[in-house]
Structure formats: structure tokens, C-alpha cells
Amino acid sequence: MTLRIGIDLGGTKIAAVALDRTGAVVASRRVPTPQDYGEILDALAGVVRGIEAELDARASVGIGTPGAGCPDTGIMRYAENTGLEGRPFLADICGRLERTVKVANDANCFALSEATDGAGAGAEVVLGVILGTGVGAGLVVHGRALAGVNGLAGEWGHSPLPWPGEGELDIAPCYCGRTGCTEMFLAGPAIAADHLRVTGRAASSAEVVKLARGGEPGARATLDRFLDRLARSLAPVVSLLDPGVIVFGGGVSKTAEIYAELPARMAPWIAFEAPRTRMLPSVHGDASGVRGAAWLWSPADWERGLPAAWRGSPAFAGT
């Protein structure tokens, strides 16, 4: 059996699946994420070896992580919510598992999953947008997740909000130290903060949407501001990349108004007439990250043969 193991390494949990050649899940594991770096490596190795023992087969391994590894040094960056920050994670996990492992940003894994056999299947260019407690994006072109020369392709959440209106530059600064970052307008907590700031009433992003659908004027205004900001933030991306599909994931992506209203709201900000980009919810939902990590190993890798791939030098997905 040809197997791919995909692992989603998060701040609180490690989730893993094994996919067969058709993409069917044939095994899975879920364990808490340790805080100690060495224990994280041990936990990852234990998950891989447990799945391989269960299936009596050796598998390729792909891992999705927060942040990214520096292409020059391999040191992890922007992974502060895990024990990976500042560590040579790729080299260490390859050594621990005694094989080549592919590592990519978790947003890239999300995008790759949906481009492979999800909402973006068949599209030449797929942008995967995550709207949750944070904001991020991954880019897939011709079936390959793009990492970029700095390992940061798709870091859209820390781009400034385009065409800011009155008062939009006066919000609290982003945790990155800058002001005006897209994440500070579009993440779930940001929607709740915007609602509280304008109306004086506390409500989660999900509660805002529910109240808006019930006809509450203040909540509907908050939802309108969110949709307008989302349209403005994505319009330059569409003009630049011209993706066939934008796939949305994360808790905020469950807002149906995104798919019903966003295309029309985006049109005035697009450089060309009637953009044909489709905007769709993810097919695999919360499983997209772990499935995308498994798909970091392309069909071409399998055609060349896994033993040869294991003997290769460690490489980031997209290289």
C-alpha cells in the first residue's frame, strides 16, 4: 500500500492521518502538543511509528506548522505559539525519523489540500484563505504549494488594509508591532472588538452574524464593515494573482454572507471587469491542514520511488 502521513502540528494538539493513493484516510492519531521541544520531536516520531506499525507499512511524512523555516538556516520563525521558534526543526525531525520529511506552513497545507481534492481541485491557481482567531493564506500553483524565497509566500494577514477609511488606522496595533494589518480587521476577535468599539456591546463574531441575520442594525453594520474590509483586502491579491478559486477556511469562513456578497463587494476594487474568481468554502474543513501536509509528497515523488526520496537531502515543500 502506498501511504502518505500528514501531520498538523498546532499549539495545543498534534493531529495525523495516513492517506492511501486515492486520498482515503486509513489511519489517524491525535495527541496533545508538548511544550518542550525535545518532547515535541518525540511525540511526532511516536505518532509516525505508531501509524506505520498499525498499517505494517512505511510512509512518506509531511508536516504543517505555524510559521516557516528560514531557507538559509532552517531555523523556524513566526512559530511563537509552539516550541519550534528558533529551532532547526526540519533537520531535527528528519534525523529523528531517519528519512526526508517535508515541512510547510499550515496555511500552505490548507491550500494544497483544497487544491488537490477539495474546493479548488482542477484550478490552475488556488488561494487558500484562513479566517479564524488569526488570518493567513497559502498559494498553490499547478498543484504545488509555493513557499517563496523567504518561506513566507501567502503571509497576507500582515499586509496593510487597502484603501483605509476614516478611523480604520486608529485601531490597536497588531502584535507584530505595526498598525493597520489585515488581521486586525478580519480575524474573529477583531470582528468582536470592532462591534464592541462601535456599539458598546460585547458579542463574539458568531454572535454578531446571528444578530445581523435577526435584523439587529448594529450587528448588521458590523457584518457590513467586515465584508467590505474583506473585499478590499482581497481585491489587490486577485488583481495580482488572478486565482481561479479562493477557498476559505477557519471559523469565520462559516459565514454564508461571504460567498453570497463578497464577489459584488470586491468588483469595484478590482483592476479588471467582472472577475471570474470563484469564492468557495473548504470541502475538508478542519481536516484540510492535515490532509495537505500528507499531499506535500507529490505524485512525481512517488513515481521516482520513496527509497530514493528518503535518501535525498531535507527540503521544504515547494522547492
Results as ranks from 00 to 15, higher is better:
Gly6Leu: 02
Ala15Asp: 13
Ala16Glu: 04
Ala18Leu: 08
Gly23Glu: 05
Ala27Gly: 10
Gly38Pro: 02
Leu41Ile: 00
Val47Cys: 12
Arg49Ser: 11
Gly50Cys: 04
Ala53Asn: 14
Glu54His: 08
Glu54Ser: 12
Ala68Arg: 04
Thr82Tyr: 10
Glu85Ser: 12
Cys94Phe: 01
Gly95Gln: 03
Ala107Phe: 06
Ser113His: 05
Gly120Ser: 05
Gly122Pro: 00
Gly122Gln: 12
Leu127His: 01
Leu127Ile: 11
Leu131Asn: 01
Leu131Ser: 03
Leu131Glu: 02
Gly138Ala: 11
His142Tyr: 07
Arg144Asn: 06
Ala145Phe: 05
Ser159Cys: 10
Trp163Ile: 08
Glu168Asn: 10
Gly177Glu: 03
Arg178Ile: 00
Thr179Arg: 14
Glu183Trp: 01
Ala190Pro: 13
Ala190Trp: 02
Ala192Lys: 14
Ala192Thr: 05
Val198His: 15
Gly200Asp: 05
Ser204Trp: 03
Leu211Ile: 07
Arg213Met: 08
Glu216Lys: 07
Glu216Pro: 03
Glu216His: 13
Arg220His: 09
Arg220Thr: 07
Thr222His: 06
Arg225Trp: 02
Phe226Leu: 05
Arg229Trp: 07
Ala235Tyr: 04
Val237Thr: 15
Val238Ala: 04
Leu241Cys: 08
Leu241Asn: 07
Val247Asn: 00
Gly251Ser: 08
Glu257Lys: 04
Leu262Cys: 09
Arg265Ala: 09
Pro268Ser: 11
Trp269Lys: 06
Ile270Thr: 14
Ala271Tyr: 12
Arg278Leu: 13
Ser282Ala: 15
Arg291Met: 13
Trp297Lys: 08
Trp302Gly: 08
Trp310Phe: 15
Thr319Ala: 14
